[in-house]
Simulated assay, not measured.
Amino acid sequence: MSTLRLRADLKWWPAGALAGVALAVGVAAWLLNWHLGADSAVYRAGALTMLKGEPLYIREHLTTLPPWVRLPFTYPPAAALLFSPLVLVPPGLVWGVIGALSVLGLAAVVKISLRSSGWVVGRPAVAGLTVAAFALEPVWKTVFLGQINLILMALIMLDVLVISARGSRWGGVLVGVAAAVKLTPLIFIPHLLFTGRWKDALRALGTFALLQALMFAVMPTDAVRYWTEAASDAERIGATHWIFNQSLNGMLGRATEVAPWGMPVALAIGALLAVPAVFLVVRYHRRGEALAAVLVTAFFALLVSPVSWTHHWVWAVPLVVLLLAQRRYWLAAGVVAPLAGCLIMLVPNGGTTEFGWGPVEVVLGNAYVLVTAVVLVVLAARELRRPSN
Rank of each mutant, 00 (worst) to 15 (best):
M50C: 00
L51H: 11
L51N: 01
G53R: 05
P55V: 13
Y57W: 14
Y57L: 14
R59E: 15
R59I: 07
E60C: 00
L62Y: 07
T64I: 07
L65V: 13
L65K: 12
P66I: 12
P67S: 14
P67K: 10
W68Q: 12
V69K: 10
R70Y: 11
F73W: 07
P76F: 07
A78I: 08
A79I: 09
A79Q: 05
A79H: 12
P85F: 11
V87M: 05
V87G: 02
P90G: 11
P90A: 15
G92I: 02
L93E: 03
V94W: 05
V97Y: 05
V97P: 08
G99C: 03
L101H: 03
L101R: 01
L101G: 02
S102P: 02
S102K: 04
L104P: 01
L104C: 05
G105A: 10
L114Q: 04
L114G: 04
L114E: 08
S116G: 10
S116H: 00
S116L: 03
S117T: 12
S117R: 01
G118N: 05
W119Q: 08
V120C: 00
V120K: 15
G122E: 04
R123C: 00
P124F: 04
V126Y: 01
A127M: 06
G128L: 13
G128D: 11
L129V: 05
V131Q: 10
A133W: 12
L136Q: 11
E137R: 10
V139M: 13
W140C: 11
W140N: 14
W140P: 08
K141V: 15
V143E: 00
F144R: 13
L145N: 09
G146Q: 12
Q147A: 15
L150H: 04
L152G: 05
M153Q: 13
M153G: 05
A154K: 02
L155R: 07
L155G: 02
I156Y: 01
I156Q: 03
M157H: 04
L158N: 03
D159A: 00
D159S: 01
V160H: 10
L161R: 10
V162F: 10
V162G: 06
S164C: 07
A165E: 15
R166H: 12
R166N: 08
R166E: 14
S168H: 13
R169K: 13
G172V: 09
V173P: 06
L174K: 08
V175Q: 12
G176N: 11
G176V: 07
V177S: 06
V177N: 07
A180H: 04
V181G: 03
V181M: 15
K182P: 08
T184L: 14
T184W: 08
P185Y: 08
L186W: 01
L186C: 09
L186F: 09
I187R: 02
I187Q: 03
F188S: 08
I189R: 01
P190E: 03
